[in-house]
């Protein structure tokens, strides 16, 4: 006697059988497979068997309630900046945008060239040729003027001066950049702090609505979430749906 499990080896129309079982067939395919079923007891038995498994699977009803997740994500500096920018009024955006453009242009055009004539430095406010000319001139002059002994010592002095100037400007640029980052960080921190404070207030309000048992459950979750330290995640609170007023 052939069991349904052995039968699969005999009739190899599994793909059609599965498609038919889940109704993912065209009317023509369905008709074709039904004609086959009339003449194939193996596939009939197989179909019956799989249908009962499907019925059994449906006896496990959904018996858990999906939580209303609250994800608190620490944004990157860039994301926080964008959000901050989005909150500004129109004139604020224009002013901030303009200031940012000025800053970027002035920084972007800073150019330090290390070559045979020493260190050349240019900024966005002067053209390269002007800068090059202005800084090169003293270095070139002594060589062109026949190298008078009294002038010779000025050559290393100029180079040292240029080095010092370049270092000074580079330091200033770095300081400016740090100051800008610090201001941005402070603003972001203020926004995040305000948000955290608001969330805490909301949380306290919610906790006040819970009964003792629910508070204990919440305390357990909080302990668990503290154990799972994740750098990007400040905290996650899964609220009871009834507390959210979803009932």
């Amino acid at each position: 006697m052939t069991t349904p499990h052995q039968s699969a080896a005999i009739c190899d129309r599994r793909a059609e059988l599965v498609a038919y079982l889940y109704g993912e067939v065209t009317p023509a395919e369905a008709a074709s497979f039904e004609r086959h079923l009339q003449t194939c007891p193996v596939c009939r038995a197989e179909l019956d068997g799989l249908q009962t498994v499907r019925t059994a699977l449906q006896s496990w009803e959904m018996d858990a309630v999906a939580p209303r997740l609250q994800l608190v994500i620490r944004p990157t500096v860039w994301q926080a900046w964008r959000e901050f920018f989005a909150l500004l009024p129109r004139w604020g955006k224009l002013a901030t945008g303009a200031a940012a453009v000025v800053l970027v242009i002035s920084l972007a055009n800073v150019q330090i060239t290390i070559g045979p004539h020493g260190v050349l430095l240019s900024t966005g406010w002067l053209t390269n040729s002007e800068t090059a000319h202005g800084l090169r001139a003293p270095a070139v002059t002594p060589t062109a003027s026949g190298a008078a002994p009294s002038q010779t010592p000025t050559l290393p002095d100029d180079t040292v001066l240029q080095h010092a100037a370049a270092r000074l400007v580079a330091e200033m640029v770095a300081t400016q950049s740090q100051a800008r980052d610090a201001a941005l960080e402070a603003r972001i921190k203020a926004i995040l702090d305000a948000r955290l404070k608001q969330q805490r207030a909301e949380l306290v309000q919610l906790v006040n609505q819970l009964n003792r048992e629910q508070r204990l459950q919440l305390a357990t979750w909080i302990r668990e979430s503290e154990q799972r330290a994740s750098p990007d995640l400040l905290d996650l609170v899964s609220n009871f749906s009834m507390v959210e007023g979803d009932e």
Binding site: H5, A8, R14, L17, V18, A19, G49, L50, V53, L57
Partner: peptide, 13 residues
């Protein structure tokens, strides 16, 4: 489809 068929058959057993 193959995985589904095999899975359902195993589940049945």
């Amino acid at each position: 489809k193959t995985r589904l068929y095999t899975g359902l058959t195993l589940l049945r057993r």
